[in-house]
Amino acid sequence: MSGPEEPPAAASLDRDDLTPEQQVALEELLFRLADDEFVHAERLTEWQIFAPTIESDLALANVAQDEFGHARLWYDLLQELGYSEDECIWRRSADDWTHATLVERPFADDGWGDAVVRTYLYDVAERIRLEALVDTSYAPLADRVGKALAEEEYHREHALSWLERLASDEDAHERLQAAVDDLFPHALSLWYPSERGDAIRAAGFRREPVAAMREEWLDTVVPTLEGYGLVVPEPDEVARPEVRGRDGSHTDAWFDLREAFTATHREVDFDRPARLRGEEA
């Protein structure tokens, strides 16, 4: 058959229905989602004893736990496609990771404004990306999107409530502005076009092109930040980092972070994780 075809319907494809090309495209989509969540969560855990109040210690830890949960949702799907957890995370080469550079950036010592701006930019993007997957053709993904989307709502509320509080204080406002200046170019890397974007949409895995999601994100975050008196760089003119994240190139901070979070796994040096009571008995 030739000519344009409608992408497959929502939740109509299962693992065994995938062509090899479709599977490669699906894997790219899943790795981008999972890597973003995992690395974002790793950074957020650094706040656990440093946030300005015990409530915010707990809140950020809680957000991080959710994001680890979401990373696990997507890495699980990759494991159903044949990868091991080791291959997805612990023994994966640093330059195979495709997360956006936004989530790997280290926090400055007084970087609470950074945490607030970062989570806000990230969580709005995550909502837009998940909404574009609600009608995904890949049934196992369709099953999971709603759950993650519902959990995300709190993250945005948390970020927004802190944005509002910090924006009303002169000194804190300066720090927010510094965070926007620093992070916005890295946040744009969330929307680095996908090599397999056409294949992803032809297979119906995602309904929206990356460029449209980027527009929606800009239309949301720019007016909101400006509403708090913050100056947002012009997206098409701002100097962009040389590294892209999505293509496996990363800032130096990423390589240190990866060394740190894989260290225990390497030291323990087990072939497979210890099993719980009775498991595989």
Binding site: D66, F68, H70, R72, A148, E151, L276, R277, G278, E279
Partner: peptide, 17 residues
């Protein structure tokens, strides 16, 4: 109950057993 449940493996294992 939520995606980040840290008892996932334990629960699914208990259920299976």
């Amino acid at each position: 109950t939520y995606t980040g449940c840290p008892a996932r493996d334990m629960l699914t294992n208990d259920v299976r057993c």
